[in-house]
């Protein structure tokens, strides 16, 4: 005899009943010991075992039973304990300790290796036409907002381009894969950036900064090519996509508190990653230059020029910053 709450289907009524289990049947009787229902055990839909919560059994078209938990009841309604593996794991000290060790470890592996690897694989399957389209679109939008036509003379621009082609040949890179563009931009200041299709934009302000010195320009352009060659834009996009997916998936449903956290942690993860990409691009440029027997000193000089435009550099927080500290990068170039 086990007592239970019986909720007949169709309304919110509740009857206190007692349950008797026979070989094949469950007999439900009311408080006056009158038999209300005799139901085949195979017709019962038993909710899977969960900690010490009341056991919920529903009987199609008849109603729902809520039974206070006990070992005897569990043995009766869960004939095969194998199917209740989740409840078993959740209450096993061994499983809990193993989880406590494996969860932080696997999250670390996922963020440190899993996501960057997936991002890289993902970047390599994106078709060139999509990359081309994305680059053209983005440049167009930037042209109508941040960028103005260059104020350099057309002949000067052409001269820079042809010297750049010579340089490309010297370091054995495809001369047709990269196009060099000049723009004027108050907002961006001295800047150079590459689009994933190989278009590299250099601002007039940057040309002023390096006093139109060609070797410095070429050093910086090689750094930008590093970004293009290693699919950095796409990797950054997919890295952001995957890590915010993972963070949302595991931590988002907790509470509003976590929402802010996941915002902050996504930023942290992303900045870690983009600073890694800067190092990769630096090293690509340095290796290419060394391979062509060029001095890497020009690269260090270019970085020093950039450092002058950032007087606040030392004050900025290394953690929250996209580019690694310039000081470290200059040292790396002189190594």
């Amino acid at each position: 005899m086990h007592s239970a709450n019986f909720y007949p289907a169709g309304s919110s009524r509740c009857l206190l009943v007692s349950l008797d289990f026979t070989k094949d049947h469950l007999v439900i009787s009311n408080e006056d010991n009158e038999v209300l229902h005799t139901i085949l055990k195979s017709e019962l839909i038993v909710a899977s075992k969960l900690a010490s919560t009341n056991r919920e059994v529903s009987i199609p078209d008849v109603g729902q039973l809520v039974i206070p938990t006990s070992n005897e009841i569990d043995e009766l309604i869960y004939p095969s304990n194998k199917l209740q593996w989740a409840a078993k794991l959740e209450s096993s000290y061994k499983a809990i300790v193993i989880s406590l060790l494996l969860v932080p470890l696997s999250l670390l592996l996922v963020f440190k290796y899993g996501i960057p690897y997936t991002a890289q694989q993902f970047a390599s399957i994106i078709p060139d036409s999509a990359v081309e389209l994305a680059s053209i679109h983005t440049l167009r939008v930037m042209d109508s907002s941040l960028l103005n036509p260059s104020r350099l003379r057309k002949t000067d621009q052409e001269a820079f381009r042809s010297q750049w082609k010579v340089q490309l040949k010297q370091v054995r890179l495809d001369t047709n894969a990269y196009s060099l563009q000049f723009r004027y931009s108050e907002t961006l200041g001295a800047n150079a950036f590459a689009f994933p299709n190989g278009t590299i934009v250099v601002t007039d302000q940057f040309m002023d900064l390096i006093e139109e010195n060609q070797s410095l320009l070429h050093a910086v352009l090689l750094h930008e090519i590093g970004h293009v060659e290693q699919h950095h834009s796409i990797r950054l996009i997919s890295q952001t996509l995957f890590s915010s997916l993972v963070i949302d998936y595991f931590f988002a449903d907790v509470s509003g508190l976590i929402d802010i956290f996941s915002g902050v942690s996504t930023t942290l993860v992303q900045n870690q990653f983009s600073s890694q990409l800067e190092w990769e691009a630096d090293n690509f440029a340095l290796q290419t230059m060394k391979g062509a027997n060029m001095s890497t000193e020009v690269f260090a000089l270019a970085l020093e020029k950039l450092a002058q435009t950032l007087p606040e550099q030392s004050k900025m927080d290394k953690w929250l910053q996209t580019h690694p500290l310039l000081r470290e990068r200059i040292a790396n170039a002189r190594k």
């Binding site: 900690a51 499983a95 998936y249």
Partner: peptide, 18 residues
């Protein structure tokens, strides 16, 4: 009780890729 449910379910979620 809930701690066990929580941590075991996180591990199972990671292992099954979500």
């Amino acid at each position: 009780e809930f701690f066990g449910i929580w941590i075991v379910n996180i591990l199972l979620t990671i292992v099954t890729l979500g």
